[in-house]
Amino acid sequence: MSKTTHKDIVPATDEAAKVADIEARTRPLDTDETRPAACKHGHVPLTDTVGDPIAQCANADGRTEWGAFNTEGCFYVYDCAVDVSNASVVENLAAQSPPDDPESTWSRICPDHEGQPADACSECDADYQDHEQ
């Protein structure tokens, strides 16, 4: 499976109407004075963002990557949590996923296993299970 880059999120095909509909339904999150409106990369989270990607971005060490995941696995990797969370939102809107059961989620990538979510890495879990036996 090939990885999507940040330039591939919006298709260059004739799906312009679909993209326009998604763009019309997405807008930056409302913010208050205690939280910055954008991450350190200047990206603004979309309204349907789950979690706090701005804080994740702020706490990154420069080597951290995040990934957007769907039922087929990791479909997008980038070094900005906000950018990846936005890719997940766009994927969910395109798939018409209900907010309480999203098809796409985002997470930090496991530093030891490419394409695996850090908090639920199946390879780390398998390594742990082998070590326990």
Rank of each mutant, 00 (worst) to 15 (best):
D52V: 00
V44T: 08
R25V: 01
D52G: 02
A81H: 03
D100A: 06
I54C: 07
G73C: 08
E33M: 10
A20Q: 09
T31P: 04
D130R: 10
A55V: 01
T47A: 15
I9S: 05
A120E: 09
Y128G: 02
A24S: 08
Q96A: 13
E103N: 11
F75T: 10
E132K: 12
A38L: 03
K40C: 09
S88L: 03
D101H: 14
A95Y: 07
V82L: 04
D83K: 06
M1F: 10
D61L: 15
D52M: 00
V19R: 09
C124D: 05
A126M: 10
Q133D: 12
G62D: 10
H41V: 10
E15W: 03
A20E: 09
D79S: 09
A24F: 04
V89W: 02
R108I: 14
E114C: 02
D100P: 00
P111N: 07
E65H: 15
L29D: 01
Q56H: 08
D14H: 05
A55I: 01
K3C: 13
P98N: 05
T71V: 13
T47G: 03
S85F: 02
S107T: 07
R25S: 05
T71W: 07
P53M: 06
D101E: 13
D125A: 11
E132P: 00
A81F: 03
R63M: 13
A37K: 09
D48L: 11
D125F: 05
E114T: 05
P45Q: 04
P98W: 04
D30I: 08
H113N: 14
T64G: 05
R27Q: 10
A126I: 12
A118H: 13
T47D: 11
D30P: 06
E33T: 15
A16H: 06
Y128H: 09
T49R: 01
N92L: 04
A120M: 05
K18A: 07
T34W: 08
D8K: 07
T47S: 14
P99L: 09
R25G: 02
A12G: 05
F69S: 07
E65A: 13
A58V: 12
E15Y: 02
Q116Y: 15
A94V: 03
T34D: 14
V77E: 01
K40N: 10
D112K: 15
V77I: 12
D79L: 01
E65S: 14
E132V: 13
E65C: 15
E72F: 04
R63C: 12
I9P: 00
P36G: 10
D30C: 08
L46R: 04
E33C: 09
L29R: 15
N59F: 12
I109A: 03
A81L: 02
P28N: 11
E72N: 06
D83L: 13
E72Q: 06
E103L: 13
D14F: 08
D48K: 08
A12R: 04
G51I: 00
S97G: 09
R27W: 08
S97N: 07
V84D: 01
N70P: 02
A12N: 04
D79V: 00
